[in-house]
Structures are given as C-alpha cells and as structure tokens.
Simulated assay, not measured.
Amino acid sequence: MRTIPMTPIALVTGIEGFTGPYMARELEQQGYRVHGLRRSGESCDTVTAVDLLDAEGLSTVLGRVKPDVIVHLAGISNVAHHDVSAIYQSNVVGTRNLLDAAARLSRAPSSVLVASSAHVYGPSSHALLTEQSPMAPFNDYAVSKVAAEYVTRLYADRLPIMVTRPFNYIGIGQALSFFVAKVVDHALRGERVLRLGNLDVERDFTDVRDLVHCYALLTGQPRAGEVVNICSGRSVSLRSVIGLVEELSGMTFEIHSDNQFVRDNEVNRLAGSNAHLLALTGGYAFRPLRETIQWMLEGR
C-alpha cells in the first residue's frame, strides 16, 4: 500500500499581528498547513488562543498541534511601548516558554525561526551592519530582543533554531504608530498636517511580503545556530520617504515637529548588509520602496 505523504504543519505565533497573516499565506503557498497562536479570544481549528506566558497551556497546545516548523513572531514590537515590564515578559519569558515547550515534544520541529530585531545593534555607523557587528542595545525593546537571542542559545543543542534580525519593514495593515504607515494614512485621508519627530534619520525599509518570503525560504532550509539580517541593503532618509509619498499621492504635507514623537536614544542610521541572507537563499531581489508605497496607497 502506498503511503500518502502528510502535509507538514507550520506553527506561527502572533498570527493576528501585522506580520502573521502575511506569514501564514506565504507558508500555505509553500505547502504547509498553518496553525496560529493568538494571545486571547476564541480558538478554532486553525488558531488557538493561548498566552505565551502560560507555560503549561502552551506545552499542551504544541503537544496537540505537533508542528514540523515554528515561526515565532509574537511579542511587543513597538520601540516606544510604555509598559517596560510587558516588553520583557512578552519578548523574553514568552520566547523561553515557547522554546521550552518545543524542546519537550516527542518529535522536535525541523526548523524554529525566532524573529529578533536589527535594533539589537544600536546606533549604526556609515558601514552596513553585518551579523558579526557588536550588539549595543540602548532601549528596553532592543535589550529584550538581545535577551531573547541569548535565550535561544539555551536550547541550541535541542532545537534547530535560526534567529532573524529584520530591519524596518512596512506594508498594508501596519499600525499607524509606525512612521511610513502614519504618513501613508495621512495621504489616504487627505490630511495635510503631519506631526512627526526627528526626520534626520535613515532606515532600511523592506516590504512585508519580501520579509515573509525570506522567512519561508530560511525555514525550508534550516541551519541551526544561524543569525540572519533581513534587509534590502539600502537605507533612505525619512524626509525622502515623505517626498516619495507626496509624489505618488499628489499630496503636499505641512510638517510640524512634535516633541512627543521624538524618542530618547534615537538611532540615527540603521542600515544592514544582506550578503549572508543572499548567500543562504541563493539570492533574492527586494521590491523597490516606491513599489511598496504605491501598493500601500492603493490599499490592496
């Protein structure tokens, strides 16, 4: 009798966040059956409500789902989040509970991808940051991500964990507390007055659809212990992003500086090298920023 191959199962934490739905669609296109975790609400066949701080409940869920791969996206992603305790609980303790539950499975997943952040590097120089650049966090969000990375090392001998360090990424559905989403939203609503913080900074912006595709590529060829930047390799100033939105939307903004949007310990330039990513994936062409912003303005 011929054995029918089973569809592999991918577990995605943070399934209802900004990145989660894009990640789920990408993995489904790659042939996975996706099961998501969310913090609260109702559970169903494809999504389970469980708090990552509930270690026992999390272990029960993983034992039932039996994931072949895990993509860990859940956590607090806003650098300016007001509740410091929640940042550490979610990003550090939640990650440890997930990895501990995965390590206790009778059959370990073939790949565990843990999303960290490029903010672990701290302020950047004019050189592109590589995975070997020193970590120099100087806000609580970044410190929590460094700690989470060290937590992954506790399980390195039991789980094939890959850590990704995404730089800034954008797309439809991102919270309006993020810079590009806020500017695009103003353009869509015809609101000319923009209240912003420091615009004399540079960021490497990538499209969320490119991000999740890179995640899927990396999940499909696990390399335990790897740390990988996810970025385009190009940085742009925030002022130039505003100019691009103005050009594509036909809007002309009236910009007001507002101290409430100026962060302490602002990173002036966050720009990375994607050479390691391209080597692992065999090359990947990131969408131009113009294309992504046009997509966001079209809203589809």
Rank of each mutant, 00 (worst) to 15 (best):
G282L: 06
S240L: 12
A49S: 13
I87A: 08
T206A: 14
T152W: 01
G299D: 12
D157T: 14
R104M: 09
A103T: 04
L248V: 12
L277S: 02
E28F: 07
S237G: 15
G31Y: 04
G299E: 12
V201T: 14
V183I: 15
E247H: 09
G233V: 01
R64D: 15
H276L: 13
Q174T: 03
V79N: 12
N168Y: 03
L218F: 01
T130E: 10
G31N: 04
S273I: 10
F205Q: 11
T19A: 15
D140N: 02
N274E: 06
N259G: 08
N139M: 00
Y155K: 04
G272L: 08
F178E: 10
V84D: 03
E298K: 11
E56K: 02
P137V: 00
A127S: 13
L211R: 03
P21G: 11
A279C: 05
P67I: 05
V34D: 05
R203K: 09
A279K: 11
E298W: 02
G122N: 03
V65L: 11
P222W: 04
S85E: 13
G243P: 02
L194G: 07
G36A: 03
F18T: 03
G250N: 11
T7A: 14
V241A: 14
R153D: 07
G233A: 05
D258F: 09
